[in-house]
Computed example of a mutant assay.
Amino acid sequence: MKILIADSMHPSLFNMLDERGWEYDYHPEFRREDIKAALPGYEGLFIRSKTFLDEELLINAERLRFIARAGAGLDLIDLDVVKRMHITLFHAGKGNRDAVAEQALGMLLALFNNILKADREVRRGIWDREGNRGIELMNKTVGIIGYGNNGSATAKRLSGFGCEVLAYDKYRDNYGDDFATESTMEEIMAKADVISLHIPLTNVTRYLINDDFIAGCAKPIYLLNLSRGEIVKLDAVVKGLESGKIRGACLDVLENEKIGKLTEEQKRTFDYLKNSDKVVLTPHIGGWTHESYVRINEVLVQQISEWL
C-alpha cells in the first residue's frame, strides 16, 4: 500500500506508518494541481483541509482506496463522489474532542469572568473590580447542538460546574447520558442560557444561527461556536449583541477566516466583534493542541489498521 501525505502532519505519523510497513511519500508543499496529478499512483491519501476533494480532483484516482482526514470536519470532501468511487473515508473526531471541549470551557469562563477585558485594563494601569464583576457558570442551563465526539466531551466537562446540560442531535437516538439530557431544539431554545454548537457544516446547518433562530430563543443567550464559521450568520450575532438577545459570544471560527480578504460588509461585522468586550475570538484553534496533534495520527492509523 502506497500513501500520499499531502499536508503538514506531526512527525509521530511516520513512525506509526513505518512500524506497519506502509509505504508513503510526504509532500506537505503540494497544492491542488499537484495532488490531482499525483493521486493516480496512490492507494491512500492523508490530508487536513488545504483543498476541496471533489470529482474533478478525484476522478482519475482509480487506485485510491481510502482518504484519512486529519481532523473532524468533512465539509471539504464531496461525500457523494467518495461513496460512488467506493473510497473509504476516515476522520479523527476522537483525536481532538478533549481539546475542543477544553477550549469551549476556557472561552466561556473567560467571557463570564471578563478575563480578557480585565487583563487588558490591568496592563494599562486600570484597577476596576466592579466593572469586571463576573457571573458564575454554576446552575446555568447549557444547550449543546450536536452530541457527537465534541459535544459529548464538552458536556462531560460542564458536569463539573453544576450545569443542566440539554443535548440535541438530529442524527442520533437515545443518546442521553450521565452528562446531558436528550432534548429537542425547541427545548433548548426555550430553556438555555448558553448554546454551544458542535455540528458539521452541511446544507442543513449552513446559517442555522440566524435572525430567526436568535429571536426564537426565550432567554438572552451566550453563544459558542467551535464547529464551522458558516453555521453562524455573523451579522445576526451583531444584531443580537446590540439588542441584548445575545449576551456574549465565543467564536473560534468565522464565516470568512481569511481576515485580510474580507468584503466591506464582513469588515464592518468583524470590526464590531473585535471591539466588543462581550466577544471572545480565537483563530480556529479549538482542537489544536500539542496532544491532539499526535492523537489524531493515532486515531487514524488505528482505524486504517482495523479496516485492513
Score class of each variant (00 low, 15 high):
V204R: 12
G248E: 05
N297S: 12
G106V: 08
E29D: 14
L208R: 05
I115H: 01
C163R: 01
Q302C: 11
S227G: 15
L254H: 09
N15P: 03
H290M: 09
Y222A: 02
G125M: 07
I209E: 01
E230P: 06
M189I: 06
L158G: 03
G131Q: 10
P200Y: 07
S292Q: 02
N210E: 05
H27A: 07
A99K: 00
N150S: 15
V232I: 11
Q303F: 02
T202L: 05
G106D: 04
R295Q: 11
I246G: 01
P220S: 14
E55L: 13
L137A: 08
R206F: 07
L281F: 05
G260S: 13
L273N: 01
V280K: 01
F14T: 10
L262P: 03
Q303V: 03
H198C: 09
R172Y: 10
V194E: 04
D75N: 15
I144K: 01
L79R: 15
M185F: 09
T88S: 14
Y24F: 14
G260R: 09
E164D: 13
E255Y: 05
E130H: 12
A190C: 10
H27I: 05
H290G: 04
L166H: 02
G41V: 06
W288S: 06
V81A: 10
T141F: 03
A249P: 01
S8L: 13
K267G: 10
N275H: 12
Y24N: 08
S152F: 02
T289V: 05
D119L: 05
D54M: 10
E19M: 13
R206Y: 07
L105S: 09
N297V: 07
K278C: 09
I145G: 01
T154M: 11
N132S: 09
D193K: 06
R65S: 13
N149C: 07
Y207S: 07
L308W: 10
Y26F: 14
L208K: 06
D177E: 10
L201R: 06
Y207A: 05
E264K: 13
A104E: 05
G148P: 04
I209G: 00
N149W: 06
A118K: 02
L201A: 12
T141D: 07
D78A: 11
I304V: 15
F112H: 06
G71P: 03
D271I: 04
G125A: 11
G240Y: 00
A68S: 11
T184S: 15
S152A: 15
L300Y: 02
G240V: 02
